[in-house]
């Protein structure tokens, strides 16, 4: 347990959905979530599936918005295996639809 992690589940908490295009091989997920965990920044939700011929994957992350988010995005963009990062607002459809499996 990382006791520095502040998981804020209060109603007012704003969330952001990040959409990443990445190379699909073992270790890529570690590189990405490692950026968050070593800063004690909790990732609330993760979805990952290969796309097209399987050489790349798409990763969806839900994170709580805080002052470090811009720095996190810049760090993600620096990763060699990350091809693209898109920032969406809260409540993106992808997590809402998958949410059915978590009820």
């Amino acid at each position: 347990m990382n006791s520095i992690t502040k998981t804020n589940h209060e109603p007012g908490q704003v969330q952001t959905v990040l959409e990443l295009a990445v190379n699909n091989h073992a270790g890529v997920m570690s590189h990405i979530v490692g950026l968050f965990s070593r800063r004690a920044y909790n990732v609330e939700g993760i979805l990952c599936m290969p796309v097209g011929n399987g050489k790349t994957s798409r990763i969806w992350l839900t994170v709580n918005e805080d002052a470090r988010l811009e720095q996190m995005i810049r760090q993600i963009e620096k990763l060699e295996d990350v091809l693209d990062v898109h920032r969406h607002g809260a409540g993106h459809e992808v997590f809402e639809r998958v949410g059915e499996f978590f009820r």
């Binding site: 270790g27 570690s30 490692g34 060699e80």
Partner: peptide
Amino acid sequence: TYGLTIPITKHNFL
């Protein structure tokens, strides 16, 4: 080694 060096390298390969 791959896992250990993720946070201390610019990039790593297995």
